[in-house]
Design a protein around this nucleic acid. Sequence first.
DNA 1: AACGCGGGGCA
DNA 2: TGCCCAGCGTT
Length: 232
Amino acid sequence: MTGSRASGRSPESVPDPKTVRWFRKNLKNWGQTHRRDFPWRRSRDPYGIFVAECLLQKTEANHALPIYRAFMARYPTLAALGDASLEELSALLEPLGLRFRASRLLDAARSILENEAYGGQLPDCETELLKLPGVGRYTARSILSQAFNRPLAVLDTNIARILERFFGVEGGRVKSRDALLWSLAQEVAPKREMGTWNLTLIDFGAAVCTAQKPRCSECILLKRCKFGEFGF
DNA sequence: AACGCGGGGCA
DNA sequence: TGCCCAGCGTT
């Protein structure tokens, strides 16, 4: 097919390259001074990052923080978690809600430990990570980008909201919109330091481009934001 | 494609 | 009070 490059696809899936570079540059700059500091971000230990990602699902980071500290003190290694009792683990995670997380975490840990091919370590491959209970596309790719420095973008509620607003993604059918946002997330991402980039986007969504009452007046992206065009 | 899970923070 | 939070599994 020659002619229109956008034929057959939503125009938003082919954003202007100059706009993409501007978006990337401004956010990277913002991240250098505003990115949050959490204990699970200070190491590349796949186990610690895996634990953090599980605790953070649908849970505010500041809420998960004290539980994460207690978790890592009680179960500092994958082997230690494998030996945990479900009752004690459940009690530890209780303040975070979503109680099924305790059994999923335990099942995931034991499943890894039982697999000889993994050598007692988390697998560094998306297909294998997705086999673990409680690990979906976001969690798998987040672990890979942060612990293994793999160039994989992620999509969470924060990032989806930023992309929707800035690039003006229309709300079509839910499934196609989701696929569009995943491809857009990968397209706008830099080639290097994807782990840092993913965290920057998440923090920007949590601090500025919030779900309710976004802080558009102090937003570094406002000038070219589709959402900002309408006077918010 | 829609839904349940969940305690806690915040306006 | 109501909405939202570094999603995922099930139907």
